[in-house]
Design a protein around this nucleic acid. Structure first.
Length: 571
DNA sequence: ACCCGACTTC
């Protein structure tokens, strides 16, 4: 029986028991089992189930609940759950999962607690779902409690539960804890092996992941797409290019390169290694690359600074009649910000508007940054004003924008507002604020915020923060204070921090301190001739030509200065 | 249903 959409709509809206007799149940099952991306259709199906009293059946109730959940209609999903009197474990699990996936962590936990009190026992999947939710919310305390609960319920060795535990502990950075869970299982299944390998991969321990990979093959387990993906995420830079190439080779031999996750990871692996030719070749070999793979390639070109390729690919995507998503548009905008071409930025903003992507946090934040870097602060502010949802990144972007344009006072005002909203500032927030102080010459506020960063917000300053502090203090003549800040740091001091002080010595004409700083730089970076050039310029300013000559003679090899180039676009 | 991918600010 062939059912086209018109017939279907008619059936769903005008159904009665007579028509029901003609509906093949295989069709109904497939309609409910496949992911339906239309909320309207889900509602029609639900109405149909209600009319035929099939909604009482926990099997159908679960199916429709899940359909509501994938369409983000969590209230309807909850309604279905409430109306079903005969609740199976699967139904409970689906509802807990629906809460967890729609970021309603506390609802998920509270439903889980209700389930513990009800006359039904949670199974491995219930615990797995709650465990995952704990990890997604970085709630270590809750994770320990749920883990304890699982052990007490006799599920401490349940394969499903343990896979989730291994992943959760790895996500919280406790890969040793994950290993302990793994070690308790005498015969791990492929999923458990994959969980541990992914855990090592995402914790930066790709070598241990490779050891586990060998161990897994020794006990006769055949790797699948998850295994390769877990290994590939760990290969982060060109230092281990050959390992990644080996995995590429392996994926081709085993046919796993057809897996969309594996192929997109191969593209991003080559991108991370700056091997864009390889990345492009892998991309071209994929039959129907999905948006994630397109994004990986576009990001690769963006990070390699090949901006014309970014735009070329974005246009190519459109020519192929594919619709970009928020992540892809945000990446393209970030790339345009670096070219400072506001015309292109406006084009992509227009694209975002036409496709209803402009209110997304990532897109909006990228727009703020793009407009401010292109010199259009006002446009960035307008975007910030209208965005419905703001996160730390959005605030960081607008703070940076104000600072960049010399409005340090506004930057601090936004910072206060951000704290009022209960958002927790991160390292980038303080980078942006310190940068604002540098642009505005606010020494006092800079010192204050630098102090608060550590004392009040528990953020240990990184090299970039010290660079800003040194620049701020040094350029306002407080060279001694800048130097004593540097001396409080453990050796070896990052060359960017010392370099910032050296450059301040240059502009303030303090050759005495410059010599001390430069000696330290020479000692730790003997091949970096830039610092010799800087010091020789300082000597030249004092007319100490003998010292200039002595330094210049030490510069071995050729130094080529890149000619300064700039361009403007005219229309 | 447990294990895998692109992500805006520094």
């Amino acid at each position: 029986m062939l059912i086209n959409s018109q017939v279907l709509s008619l059936l769903l809206s005008e159904v009665n028991i007579v028509i029901l007799m003609f509906i093949p149940f295989e069709w109904l099952h497939s309609e409910l089992s496949n992911i339906c991306r239309s909320l309207l259709r889900v509602k029609q199906l639900h109405a149909f189930l209600l009319k035929t009293y099939l909604s009482e059946d926990p099997f159908y109730a679960t199916k429709i609940l899940r359909q509501y959940a994938v369409n983000s209609d969590i209230n309807s999903a909850h309604h279905v759950f409430d109306k079903t009197s005969d609740r199976s474990v699967y139904l409970w699990n689906s509802m807990i999962r629906a809460f967890a996936q729609s970021q309603r962590f506390f609802s998920a936990i509270s439903l889980f607690r209700t389930m513990l009190g009800a006359d039904i026992s949670p199974d491995g999947h219930t615990y797995a779902c709650v465990i995952r939710a704990c990890a997604d919310n970085f709630d270590y305390g809750m994770l320990r409690r749920v883990h304890g609960g699982a052990v007490a319920a006799g599920l401490g060795l349940d394969p499903v539960c343990c896979s989730a535990l291994v992943t959760a502990y790895s996500k919280l950075g406790l890969v040793h804890e994950a290993r302990r869970v793994f070690n308790r299982i005498t015969e791990p299944d492929i999923v458990l092996w994959n969980s541990l390998i992914s855990g090592y991969g995402s914790s930066g321990l790709w070598d241990v992941g490779m050891q586990m990979f060998s161990a897994m093959k020794l006990v006769g387990k055949k790797p699948d797409g998850y295994t390769l993906a877990g290994l590939l995420v760990g290969i982060v830079d060109s230092g281990v290019l050959s390992i990644g190439q080996g995995l590429h080779c392996l994926s081709q031999k085993s046919g796993l390169d057809a897996d969309s996750h594996v192929s997109s990871l191969l593209v991003s692996f080559y991108s991370r290694c700056k091997c864009m030719d390889y990345a492009y070749r892998v991309f071209c070999s994929i039959l129907n690359p999905d948006l994630v793979t397109w994004s990986a390639l576009i990001m690769g070109y963006s990070q390699a600074g090949v901006f014309e390729k970014v735009l070329y690919l974005f246009r190519k995507l459109n020519i192929e009649d594919r619709k970009a998503d928020t992540v892809l548009v945000a990446s393209v905008l970030a790339s345009i910000a670096r070219t400072a071409n506001v015309g292109l930025g406006c084009e992509v903003h227009g694209y975002a508007l036409r496709h209803g992507l402009e209110l997304d946090v990532r897109v909006s934040s990228a727009l703020i940054d793009m407009y401010s870097k292109c010199g259009c602060l006002q446009l960035g502010i307008s975007v910030f004003r209208i965005m419905p949802e703001r996160n730390v990144v959005s605030y960081n972007s607008i703070i940076l924008a104000f600072g960049l344009h010399g409005y340090a006072y506004e930057a601090f005002k936004v910072f206060e507002k951000m704290l009022e909203k209960g958002l927790v500032p991160d390292e980038a927030t303080f980078s942006s604020l310190l940068s604002a102080c540098c642009h505005g010459g606010l020494v006092k506020d800079g010192r204050e915020i630098f102090r608060r960063m550590e004392e009040e917000f528990n953020i240990r300053p990184r090299a970039e923060h010290y660079v800003y502090m040194v620049k701020l203090l040094g350029s306002s003549g407080e060279l001694e204070e800048a130097y004593s800040l540097i001396r409080s740091l453990p050796e070896p001091v990052d060359k960017a921090i010392l370099g910032a002080l050296l450059s301040c010595c240059n502009s303030r004409g303090n050759s005495e301190l410059a010599e001390t700083v430069a000696q330290q730089l020479f000692a730790n970076n003997p091949t970096d001739n830039v610092y010799r050039v800087m010091l020789s310029n300082i000597y030249a300013g004092d007319g100490r030509w003998d010292d200039v000559k002595m330094l210049r003679d030490k510069i071995t090899g050729r130094m080529r200065k890149m000619p300064g180039l700039s361009w403007i676009e005219s229309s």
